[in-house]
Design a protein around this nucleic acid. Structure first.
Length: 135
DNA sequence: GCCAACGTTGGC
DNA sequence: GCCAACGTTGGC
């Protein structure tokens, strides 16, 4: 089981929208590293759901409910997506500023590779984020 | 709105 | 295969 962080600009697709929809196909990724991450996702793996640009905070946890399949919004076979569903909202959002202020999270992919929209999160980092959200 | 950090493209 | 130019993302 691996853990992930997926980013979305809330005005494009927000956590609330995911909750309302029940599940969604996570598509539109056009970056090879992010694609590789999507392709290696397994059913049941948990993803931190991060709002980029507006909010800049982790707002919930989503669960992978299908392995990857071709992204119909792409014209090449290269690109894939997975289905995700809401798992649970965070009790309180964890902001980027808060993450940056936490020494134990300094190695997070989110910080090291800010532009990557699908990034792996270690189990430890995942647990720390959840713990912070419950403070 | 600006800019840093990347990724991609295309000329050579 | 290198590198300059350009485009995109996302924080500030």
């Amino acid at each position: 089981m691996r853990n992930w962080l997926i980013k979305s600009e809330p005005y494009k697709y927000s956590w609330d929208q995911l909750v309302q929809d029940g599940s969604t196909f996570w598509d539109g990724v056009r970056n090879y590293q992010a694609r590789n991450n999507l392709a290696s996702m397994q059913i049941g793996e948990l993803c931190l759901f991060y709002h980029s640009n507006e909010g800049k905070e982790v707002v919930g946890i989503a669960r992978v409910i299908s392995t990857s399949r071709p992204d119909p919004t792409a014209d090449a076979e290269t690109w894939v997506g997975v289905d995700v569903a809401p798992y649970q909202p965070l009790k309180s959002p964890v902001t980027l500023a808060r993450i940056k202020s936490e020494p134990s999270l300094a190695q997070m992919g989110l910080l090291r590779q800010g532009r990557l929209s699908v990034v792996e999160v270690s189990r430890e980092e995942f647990d720390i984020i959840v713990a912070i959200s419950e403070e």
